[in-house]
Amino acid sequence: MRILVWHVHGSWTTSFVQGGHDYLVPLTPDRGPDGRGRARTYPWPANVREVPHDLLSGEDVDVVVYQRPHEIELARHWLGRDVPGVYVEHNTPAGDVPKTRHHLADRDDIPLVHVTHFNELFWDSGRAPARVIEHGVVDPGCLYTGELPRAGVVVNEPIRRWRVAGTDLLPAFAAAVPLDVYGMRVGGLPAKLGVVDRMETFEDPPQSAMHAELARRRVYLHPYRWTSLGLALIEAMLLGMPVVALATTEAVEAVPPEAGVVSTKVTTLIDALGAFAADPELAAQAGKAARGAALARYGLGRFLSDWDRLLRDLV
């Protein structure tokens, strides 16, 4: 099957393109949001091919995977014809959340796939044929050493996404355990937060390098207030890291009690960070449980099988 999919969410797409299909990713001259082409910091297989957007009409595409509203018309324009499609909703709703209707809520011709049950619960999907296909994550391997009594954090654009990402909470966490923050546009964060001596930042490292470095940290901190489910959390669990997370997202389903601490009480989370940092054996035991839980629920095989069943129904 030939599948057209935009490079929007690198971690999710990295898992999606591991299936046995041919994947076409649009390419624009500026490699902008509508045409990034192949990933440069994620390991994608050879069956992912970037195609200049103005040549897509000559490609034999079977299915289009939409991830943003405007892609529906963009695909029709670039392909020059209608092709069966499915819409993946990665994000939680914004605004008046209990009343937020999905932009496909008044359509029944495009299947709507939520990546978590949390998403499905909070979006009003209307009459769109909605279902959940939970995340699957490429296993980076159990790399955990926990040799550094520090906490690792992965967040993109923490200043722009201030309260959403829980950036405002980081000084309180850093007071308990030094933090190392990885992601896009994180460079000015320590000065912005006033914790220069308690925080290091690492700007947009390649995924494999980030995993190797994260695994040296004693514990993983997931400070997000509002998101569907950050895949960095699952990746950290697969690395074998214990987890400390806000109980405000799908994290409450992803992280069992033996794998870490999930709470809405910041002081509880601060205490948990301190406990893991001070006790390598406790951290390693929780990290082992975290890896087992992530493998059981977010294995790549189940994810790809779920998607294959849906894709077969579309064509």
Rank of each mutant, 00 (worst) to 15 (best):
V244M: 08
G260C: 00
G80R: 12
G166H: 00
H9T: 11
D204E: 15
D313G: 14
V51E: 05
H135I: 06
I270W: 05
R40V: 15
V113R: 03
A215V: 07
R160K: 14
V181A: 07
G292C: 05
R161F: 12
V164L: 15
I72S: 00
R76C: 06
T100Y: 11
R312M: 12
V181G: 01
K288Y: 13
V195L: 01
R225T: 02
D34N: 14
G187V: 04
D62C: 01
P129N: 01
V155D: 00
P98S: 10
R49N: 13
D30C: 07
P33N: 07
K265F: 13
Y42S: 11
A209M: 13
E250N: 05
I133Q: 02
S125F: 09
L121E: 15
A277I: 07
V88S: 04
G20L: 13
V97A: 09
D139K: 03
E71L: 03
R312N: 13
P111A: 10
W162G: 01
H9D: 14
G126V: 04
L193N: 01
V195M: 00
G152S: 01
H103L: 09
A130L: 11
L112N: 00
A254P: 02
D34S: 13
I3F: 04
K99A: 15
V51D: 04
V132R: 08
V186F: 03
V315F: 13
T201Q: 01
G37R: 06
G299I: 09
S208P: 11
G230T: 13
W226N: 10
E50C: 03
D168C: 09
L55C: 10
R198I: 06
V219I: 13
I72L: 03
R312I: 12
D197S: 08
S57V: 07
R291H: 09
V181N: 04
V315R: 13
A277R: 02
V219L: 09
A105S: 10
R131G: 10
D60C: 09
R225E: 10
G292K: 01
F16M: 00
G152V: 04
S263F: 08
L229N: 04
A290S: 03
P256Y: 06
C142V: 15
Y298H: 12
L148M: 11
D279E: 13
L229Y: 04
V132W: 09
L229D: 00
R49E: 14
M210R: 03
T167V: 02
V155T: 05
